Amino acid sequence: MRRILRDNGLSIVFGLLFLGSLVGQALAGHADFINRQLAQGGEPISFGQYVTSADFAVDVAENWQSEYLQFFLYIMATVWLVQRGSPESKPVGRIGPETDEDQQVGRHAHDASPPWVQAGGWRTALFSRSLGLVMGALFLASWLAQSVVGMSAFNAEQLGDFADPLPWPEYITSADFWSRSLQNWQSEFLAIGSMAILSVYLRQRGSPESKPVGASHTITEESG
């Protein structure tokens, strides 16, 4: 058990942090929702009703879609774009999808390679792009979920104000939908850019996201 915990520490710790923060968000969101309801002369709702409501779901979905967008764009951008001196970047001379030898595919695959790499053909081609495809699919799925539950939350407010609800095609072109999306996207883009630049000049001893403490600022793709 101790070995399992050690070997899977990152996924276990961040999984627990995710669950804890999700529960915390639900509890704080429920309290805030009740305060807003009472301030507007409405009736409070139970915790179970809140966590199954569009109001809670849209907040969760808009966070998820922005995170998956961050990873999808970073995975795809780092194939072709580089940042000299950053451990988050490939060396300048390796721009692009790289050779079969670099990627250990085709005749360069070995016995320990994943089965789909050894199989060749469409399976190797698909596996070679599987991370980007899955991240892109998760982004689109969570963005679609955000648009659906966001529409429900928006229309609930519209009806409360005796205004006409919007159908889905109109909602996805509305200011509410794009405001929710863009306010999250800009923070993700800032975080990615900051990490790429700051890791050129700053260090964190022992972290694979940082270069070795004594490494030159100009060294690219070297983890410590």
Score class of each variant (00 low, 15 high):
104 Q>W: 10
87 P>R: 02
151 M>V: 01
86 S>C: 12
147 S>Y: 08
158 Q>G: 07
103 Q>E: 04
138 L>T: 03
103 Q>G: 05
158 Q>D: 07
100 D>P: 09
158 Q>F: 04
159 L>M: 04
86 S>T: 09
101 E>Q: 12
107 R>N: 04
97 P>Q: 14
125 A>Q: 07
125 A>S: 07
154 F>Y: 11
139 F>I: 05
124 T>H: 05
132 G>D: 01
152 S>H: 06
104 Q>R: 13
163 A>I: 12
103 Q>H: 12
134 V>K: 03
110 H>V: 02
115 P>I: 03
120 G>E: 10
96 G>W: 12
150 G>E: 09
117 V>Q: 09
126 L>F: 01
130 S>P: 02
97 P>W: 14
167 P>E: 13
96 G>F: 14
92 V>W: 08
87 P>N: 06
162 F>H: 13
151 M>H: 00
135 M>P: 02
125 A>K: 08
151 M>P: 00
99 T>E: 13
161 D>F: 07
106 G>N: 10
146 Q>H: 10
143 W>K: 11
157 E>A: 15
132 G>Q: 00
101 E>S: 13
163 A>N: 09
99 T>G: 08
89 S>C: 01
130 S>G: 04
142 S>M: 09
105 V>A: 02
116 W>D: 00
167 P>Y: 09
137 A>D: 08
144 L>D: 10
